[in-house]
Design a protein around this nucleic acid. Sequence first.
DNA 1: TATGAATGAGCATTCATTCAT
DNA 2: GATGAATGAATGCTCATTCAT
Lengths: 186, 186, 186, 186
Amino acid sequence: MREQVRAAILDAAEELIADRGLEGTALAQIAAKAGVAVGTLYNYFDDRDAMVRALFATRRATFRPQLLAVIAAGKGLRFEARLRRFMRELFEVFEANRRYIKVAFAAEHLKQQQGAPQDLRLAIEEIVAAGVAEGVIAKASAQLLATMLRGAIRAVVVQRIEAGGAFPDDADGVVSLVLDGARRRG
Amino acid sequence: MREQVRAAILDAAEELIADRGLEGTALAQIAAKAGVAVGTLYNYFDDRDAMVRALFATRRATFRPQLLAVIAAGKGLRFEARLRRFMRELFEVFEANRRYIKVAFAAEHLKQQQGAPQDLRLAIEEIVAAGVAEGVIAKASAQLLATMLRGAIRAVVVQRIEAGGAFPDDADGVVSLVLDGARRRG
Amino acid sequence: MREQVRAAILDAAEELIADRGLEGTALAQIAAKAGVAVGTLYNYFDDRDAMVRALFATRRATFRPQLLAVIAAGKGLRFEARLRRFMRELFEVFEANRRYIKVAFAAEHLKQQQGAPQDLRLAIEEIVAAGVAEGVIAKASAQLLATMLRGAIRAVVVQRIEAGGAFPDDADGVVSLVLDGARRRG
Amino acid sequence: MREQVRAAILDAAEELIADRGLEGTALAQIAAKAGVAVGTLYNYFDDRDAMVRALFATRRATFRPQLLAVIAAGKGLRFEARLRRFMRELFEVFEANRRYIKVAFAAEHLKQQQGAPQDLRLAIEEIVAAGVAEGVIAKASAQLLATMLRGAIRAVVVQRIEAGGAFPDDADGVVSLVLDGARRRG
DNA sequence: TATGAATGAGCATTCATTCAT
DNA sequence: GATGAATGAATGCTCATTCAT
C-alpha cells in the first residue's frame, strides 16, 4: 500500500524528469501525475532532493542486478566471446530500463549520483580484467580499453535516446574495433 | 571599455555556470561577480537566454580557430602521424580553453548549443576520411572509428574535468588502440 | 472560508485600485491589505490580469441585478414617470456600489471591461425605446437622448466621486431638462 | 534651438501617450522618438512627472486661446445663436488639437491636470451665464444645463476618439435637445 | 549641454516547503 | 496519513533616474 504510493510517485517523477529535465519538473507536477497531494510527497521523502536520490536508488536497485546477471552469465566464457555477449546483452538491459537510462545519463552531470554509469564502469572493468588475466589484453591497455568501451557505449546511448530508436547492434563492431583496431590489414 | 565589461560579465557567467550549472546560476550572482548591477546585464544582452548563447558563441569563436589550426597543421602528414599529432594538440587546445570545455560539456544536453562538440565531430570526421582516402582505414570502419574517437575524447575530458587534473597524454594510447586494437600480439 | 479570503483579496484590490489606480497598485500591496502572502493571490487567480477581471466580474454580478431590478420596477409605469423613477433609484444603486462605480469609471478607458457603463447604456436605451413606443419621444431624438442621459449620469458620478459627497438628487432636474429643455417658457 | 528640442520631446511624448497610454510609455521610447538621449530629457524637465505636466501645460497654452477665440467670436450674438455657433466651432478646435484632446481626456482621471476639460467647463459656464442674463435660461437650470453640455461633449469626444472618425455634427442636435427637450410636441 | 551606460528598487510570477484540518 | 492552501524567498526583467565623459 505505502509501497505502491511510493512507487507511483517515483514513476511520475521519472517520467516527468525524462521529459522535461530535472530542473524543469515541479513537485506539483509530480504529485498531480502520481495522483497524490503535494504534501503527501513529504510523507515519503524528506525533501525534493531526497526524492530524486530515492528515484535513482530505486531504479538502480532494479538495474544493477540485471547488469550483474549479464556479467555473471558470461563468467565461463573466454574473454572475447564474453565481451561480445556482454555488449549485446547490455543493450537489452538498457532497453528494458530505457527511461531510467535516459534519466541517469541526463543527470550524469549532477554530483549526487552516477548510479548506472558507475555500475557500468565496474562491470566493464571486471570483464577487461578477465581479459588481462587471460592474457588477451595487455595490462597496460586495460585502463584505456575500459575507458574506450564506456565512451562508445555512452555515445550510442545518448544518440539513441535523442534519436528515439532502439539501442542498436553496433555491439560487435565496437568490440572488433577495440580488439583489433581500425587499421586495414593485408 | 564596453568590451571589457561584456567580457567580465561572460567570464563571471562562465565561472558560475561551470561551478553550479546553468539553472543554478542566477543573474544576480553573475552581476555581483562581474561587479555590475543587474540592470547592466540587460545593456549587453537581451535576456538571460541571449546571454548564455552569447557566452557559448564568444567562447566558440576563440576555440574554433584553434581547433581549425590544429586540423590544418596536420594537413601534409600521412594519416597515422596526423591523427597522433591531432590528438596531442587537441588536448592542448582543450587545456587552453578548459573552462569553456567544462561549460560546453556540462551544457551538452541543452539544445541551444552543440558548438564545441559539433566542431570536434567535424574535425574528427575529416581526419578519418583522410585515413580512408589513404587506404589505411576501411571505409566500413570509418563511421565507427569516428564515433569511438569522439567517445574516447569525451570520456577523457569528463574524467579530467571532474578529477581536476590536466588533460593527460592518453593521446597516443587512444590512437594506438583504435588503430591496432587492444589485443595482445605475438 | 475560501470565499472569504477571495472576497478579502478583491476588497483589498478594489480599495487600492480606487485610490491609486490600476497601474499604481502592486500585488504586494493587495496581498498586504488582504492579510495574505503574495503567493496566496495565485491560489485564487491565475495572474494579475485575471484578478482584475475577477474583481470587475464579481462586482458587476452584484451591481447588475440591482440595476435590472430598478429597470424592472418601472415596467408598468408610463414613460416619464418611469424615467424619473429610474433616475432616482439609479443613484441609490450607485450609492450602494460606490466603490465599484468608482473603480469601473476609473478603469473605463481599459478595453478589458465596460461592465457597469455597458449595463447602464443598455438600461437607458431600453427606457428611451419605451418612450419612443409610447409616442413621447420622437424616434429621431432617441439616440441623442440616450447619449445625453448617459453623459449626464457620468458627469454627476465623476463629480461626486471626486468631490466625495453623496450622489445627489439632480435626478429630476436632469429628466426635466432632457424632456422639456432648459429654455424658459413664457 | 533649445525650444525646438523641447518641442520635439513633447511631441514625441504626446504621440506615444496618445497611442499607448501614460503608463505604457517609457522615457526611453520618448527619447528615441524625439531623437535625443534619455539623459537629455532631464536637461529639459526635472523628472517624468514634470515632463507630463509640461506637456499638458504647453498644449493647453495652444488650445486655450483657440477656445477663448471661439467664445469671443460669439460675443455679439444672442444666446441661442451663440451656443449653436460655439458648439460647431468647438468641434473644429477639437479637430485641430485632436491628439491633445485624446491625451487630455485619456488622462482625465489623473489628478495632475484637467487642462482642456477645465477650460471647457469655464467656457460653457460663461455662455450659459450669458443665456441666463439674456433671460433665455432660468437661473435654476443654469448649472444643470452646463453639466449636461459638458457631458454631451465628452460623450461625443470619447466616442469619436475610439471610433477614429472626425468630430461629428451632432452639435445642433445637442443644442436643440438641451434647449427644447426631447419631448414630442403636438 | 548632450550622451547613453550604469544603477537598483520595484514588479509579477514561481515553487519548495510547512502545517492546520 | 493525506490534503492542499498558505507561505515568502528567489528569479528574471523593467525603467526612472544618475552621472562620468
